[in-house]
């Protein structure tokens, strides 16, 4: 029963999504749109599950005092500060005690995590619990009495809190783009080892890469045309062969899932 119903659901919904494509009726399209909306909505709950998992993992690392457990506090701080910025907004020109509130809120979370992590040490646990409650009271008090901001959220322009946008622009994006740009150094190192014209195949790799890399070089303007041809013709041909293989693989896997041959996604138990 615990497994049969899920297998039946997979079969029914899988079959429906396959057949609805061949039914050119508005009710079929309507059901299709509904199901796509459902997937998105359930996905948000899955995201909440992921957030809980991250919190739980971080607290567990702190509790077990694993190597580098101090960094788990950084993860928790980043997580909860961004959540605070995502769910609050200011009313007027001044932020009032907002930054103090963020600090007390963050301290509440950190101390709560520390309390959970100290579950095997009653003395420490009680101490952290008292501190948590103190900061919690301060957090609630500021939230109630400070009128310059509130848990007011959404406008037609999107999220209202400018701190949210600033955290995205000045914290998230710099880290993300620097991490990707870091790959330039590793790729250069890999290229040094890979780009040696030892045989015909390695020479083809080297020449194709050089032509594409010299695409925008002002000293070799003719490279732009050659590079475009390389990307649009031989590259397209091989990519198409790869895509056909991938497509067949996905279709076969989807069929195995719908028919209940592939059951790994259900887990154990």
């Amino acid at each position: 029963m615990k497994r049969q119903i899920p297998y039946a659901l997979v079969f029914l919904f899988g079959l429906f999504m396959v057949f609805q494509y061949f039914v050119p009726h508005e009710s079929s399209e309507w059901a299709y749109e509904f199901l796509l909306d459902w997937i998105m909505i359930i996905g948000i709950f899955a995201l909440a599950l992921g957030i809980w998992s991250l919190f739980h993992l971080s607290v567990e690392k702190i509790r077990a005092r694993k190597e580098g457990h101090g960094y788990s506090y950084i993860t928790l701080a980043g997580l909860f500060v961004m959540i605070a910025f995502g769910f609050t907004a200011r009313h007027g020109e001044s932020w009032g005690f907002y930054l103090v509130w963020v600090f007390t809120y963050l301290m509440t979370i950190m101390l709560a995590a520390r309390t959970l992590a100290a579950s095997n040490e009653p003395g420490k646990r009680n101490m952290f619990m008292v501190a948590t409650l103190g900061f919690l009271v301060a957090t609630i008090a500021i939230a109630i009495f400070d009128d310059s901001w509130s848990f007011y959220f959404y406008t037609s322009e999107g999220l209202e809190n400018s701190m949210w946008r600033r955290f995205f622009d000045f914290v998230m994006m710099p880290i993300l783009s620097t991490m990707f740009s870091l790959l330039a150094f590793f790729i250069a190192s890999a290229a040094y080892r890979a780009f040696r014209a030892r045989n015909v195949l390695a020479t083809l790799l080297l020449v194709a890469a050089l032509i594409v890399m010299l695409r925008f070089n002002p000293w070799f303007p003719q490279m732009a045309g050659l590079s475009n041809w390389l990307m649009n013709v031989p590259n397209l041909a091989a990519q198409r062969a790869i895509v056909i293989g991938i497509g067949l693989g996905i279709v076969a896997t989807a069929l195995k899932v719908i028919l209940g041959i592939e059951r790994g996604y259900m887990g154990k138990g």
Partner: peptide
């Protein structure tokens, strides 16, 4: 690295909450 993990998880959660 750890800061990014926390911030991006919260970012996508809030984004999903407000938009979806």
């Amino acid at each position: 690295e750890h800061l990014f993990v926390g911030v991006s998880a919260a970012f996508w959660m809030c984004q999903g909450f407000w938009s979806t």
